[in-house]
Amino acid sequence: MANSIIELKNLVFRYASATEPCLDIASFRAVAGDRVFLYGPSGSGKSTLLGILGGVLAPQQGEVTILGQNLVSMTSAARDRFRADHIGFLFQQFNLIPYLSVFDNVLLPCRFSERRLQQALAGGATLHAEAERLLSHLDLGPALWDRPVTQLSVGQQQRVAAARALIGRPEIVIADEPTSALDADRQASFLQLLLRECGEANATLLFVSHDRRLAKDFKREIDLSTINSVSHEQEAA
């Protein structure tokens, strides 16, 4: 049996301003190399779950074990470092820092995490070369590397963001609707690139979307609204 990468047990989360919990998950588990499609319609507690997995939110009850470490017992600063070291994030759009170059955007996790920096250098090359390798794998040719990121198309921006999520080989990549701003053709090709690169990097991919059509490429599909026993209420604002 494969190693458990993410494990949630009896998780209950309630926002400080709310009276009712917005997340109550009895059990969730993802193993090494897993490709999980998490179906999360709006109101299902998706953002909250991502916040908990990323360590920016701490649940009131339950266990959050990632890579064998219990996030709940960590300080918030330790969770921030843990996120930087082990998780690559990818959002729906406007994923890039507009005033940084393509390379500085890609290398951003290496600035905050010594571990990601060392792993990016582990291939024997320079940081720049590693960024170039990822960008090339994601079909971003050298002609685009020196452009201001604001001049890239949305699809190109998402691939830069994917390179950023993958650099330094984090064990987990969490993608939050990364394709929602792309048209159907580009959605499919972006998804293939992402799946391929996660496979190559041996990263566990947690792909969150409200678009079920994308689920066919994943080994596993989970409906957040079924594992979250809080009824379909509004997410806390």
């Binding site: 990323g54 918030s76 921030d80 930087a84 994030f89 890039l96 820092i97």
Partner: peptide, 16 residues
Amino acid sequence: RRELAILRSVGARPLD
């Protein structure tokens, strides 16, 4: 705010 969220996602602490 989105820029700050991106920085948070790559590991920036609120203190950062």
